[in-house]
């Protein structure tokens, strides 16, 4: 565990807490993509099956359980409790366009052709593109609530911090996971446009809105 990894995890945790807090306080999930949240639940479920096969640390296990539980709780809030506020008309990205190619790629490019390993690879690839329905929704409506942009910023920062963590691990631990690094870089690149808007607009007190 190095400082970048810890900050990355905390940023990820913060993102989830911001999202839950936003929904709970406003009693609304307006502006949030249910598709992205379903994909995240799928990511956590397929990646953390190793909870049953290997133990790494209390920290690791606790975080995994929290990520899985919070992702299903988010889906429950969106599709059941606060269903009336869910903006499904603008959440029209087709999940199968991501899940099917990513599934195929996980079969073809993996560290080892074993069920758990293929599922882990699938989750890494899927996570890298899971934000697309949310970004698509923001671009479709042309705006995002400030709290939603804080959520997206924390979520994007998490993978950027992981890249620093991988650089650190490469030099100091001799550790290098090509699949995680390439997917992590793709994931971070997808946020670049949003990072730019966040820094130039939201941090200056303006609402995030896209030019018409």
């Amino acid at each position: 565990m190095n400082v970048f990894r810890l900050l990355g995890d905390m940023s990820h945790l913060l993102a989830i807490l911001i999202l839950l807090l936003k929904m709970w306080k406003t009693r609304s999930c307006a502006g949030i993509s249910g598709k992205t949240q379903i994909l995240f639940a799928l990511v956590f479920t397929t990646r953390y099956l190793d909870l049953f096969s290997s133990f790494i640390s209390i920290y690791n296990t606790t975080m995994k359980l929290f990520f899985i539980a919070s992702s299903y709780f988010t889906i429950f809030l969106m599709y059941s409790k606060f269903k009336a506020t869910y903006d499904s008309n603008h959440d029209s990205f087709r999940m199968e366009f991501l899940v099917v190619p990513v599934g195929g790629l996980a079969f073809l490019v993996n560290h080892e052709f074993l069920p758990l390993e293929i599922l882990w690879t699938f989750s890494i690839y899927l996570e890298s593109v899971a934000i697309l329905p949310q970004l698509f929704m923001v671009s479709k409506t042309g705006e995002a609530e400030t709290i939603t942009s804080h959520y997206l910023f924390a979520l994007g920062s998490y993978r950027l911090l992981y890249i620093f963590n991988w650089v650190y691990r490469y030099y100091f631990d001799g550790f290098f996971d090509l699949i995680a690094v390439v997917a992590g870089c793709v994931q971070t690149i997808l946020y670049c446009d949003f990072f730019y808007l966040y820094i130039t607009k939201v941090l200056k007190g303006k609402k995030l809105s896209l030019p018409a």
């Binding site: 995890d9 690791n60 560290h111 550790f175 090509l178 699949i179």
Partner: peptide, 10 residues
């Protein structure tokens, strides 16, 4: 270590 033996990240 091989990456697949050390999926120790979240």
């Amino acid at each position: 270590p091989s990456p697949k033996d050390t999926h120790d990240e979240l």
